[in-house]
Nucleic acid binder design. Structure first.
Lengths: 173, 173
DNA sequence: GCGAGGTGGTTAGGGGCCATACTAAATGTC
DNA sequence: GACATTTAGTATGGCCCCTAACCACCTCGC
């Protein structure tokens, strides 16, 4: 699984196979971004597994810290951009490890409050230097100006993602 | 889950909480790329589900086309960059749908050959116009020069991914 | 030949994510 | 106040991906 795949030629070949009028370079951007995302996602899981966490669990703990240590499950789901069911699963794992605990809400009988434990806070404190250090190292190949350019371009691509899922008008079938 | 999260301020805040000497902008690039990858991944799954496929299954069918319709499971695993076990699962799904079939290899008694069926080829032909069209649309916000810049920067970031998983030298603890 | 080690494929079990469907509690309406 | 609707959280079952373990087969060295 080399890292510069697919190539422009491969993309062009796949498009031409169906006689489509599509820019191979545009397709290449989309496909490479997907591949990079998948690759990065896997590396991040390996990275966090060293601390007994996963990417999702880390993000939940970080969100908890940002909220001064307390937050409801549905609030977490909103902030993390995942479903409530996923948050339930993440909390379960973190609670088993004692990094977080669940307390019923005083105001709302339906609601719960997820609390960052001292142990959870310590875990975050311990992994922070290495975590952020490695992230910085990964991005080190880009100078600050290039990073700004990348963030701009990436943001514009992200805003184009709805093109993949949007319903099309009827006459386009 | 807004699309410009986290912000530079949020990244800076999380870093400062531990008194680390890390560039917030670098961290932001890493985190945004992760978020974009996850977001794109989900959108792609929705996209492919319209054709009764998933991203993994589509990629397998495409790899099969590139190899003129026949390939061994382990060859597919190499090309797709996933484990052999994952390929076994993908083939299972595709075989149930009749898009692919499994045949024992004539030369090697251990090996199997995965064959793209006529139905599989037709499915790919049918979805191609919409698939590539939407990809192009997603990338439409970037002009060709910007796309080239993006591919360059993305490639350099991908080459930095090993920084996340690499073992560190002993004196760094 | 024949046993050792390597390779191909599958199974089992785990985690992350999702959608769907359910329960319990809060809220709105009459 | 009683009933319908909405909301919070969870359980279930699915897909994708992984690793580890396993079996069958190939291949190499003796």
């Amino acid at each position: 699984m080399p890292e510069d795949t697919p190539t422009l030629d491969q993309a062009a070949y796949q498009i031409r196979r169906y006689g489509l009028d599509v820019d191979p370079q545009a397709v290449l951007v989309a496909v490479r971004l997907m591949a990079a995302g998948a690759r990065l996602g896997q590396a991040v899981e390996v990275h966090f597994s060293r601390f007994g966490l996963s990417a999702g669990r880390y993000r939940l703990l970080a969100a908890l810290e940002d909220a001064d240590g307390e937050m409801s499950p549905s609030g977490l789901a909103d902030v993390l951009g995942v479903s409530r069911a996923t948050v339930t699963g993440l909390i379960g794992g973190l609670e088993r490890e004692g990094l977080v605990l669940r307390r019923p809400s005083a105001e709302d009988g339906r609601s719960a409050v997820v609390v960052l434990t001292a142990r959870g806070a310590r875990r975050m404190r311990e992994l922070a230097p290495e975590h952020f250090g490695r992230l910085q190292e990964m991005v080190g190949a880009l100078d600050p100006e290039e990073r700004a350019v990348f963030l701009d371009l990436l943001g514009r691509l992200v805003r184009g993602i709805p093109a993949l899922t949007r319903e099309r008008s009827a006459r386009e079938e």
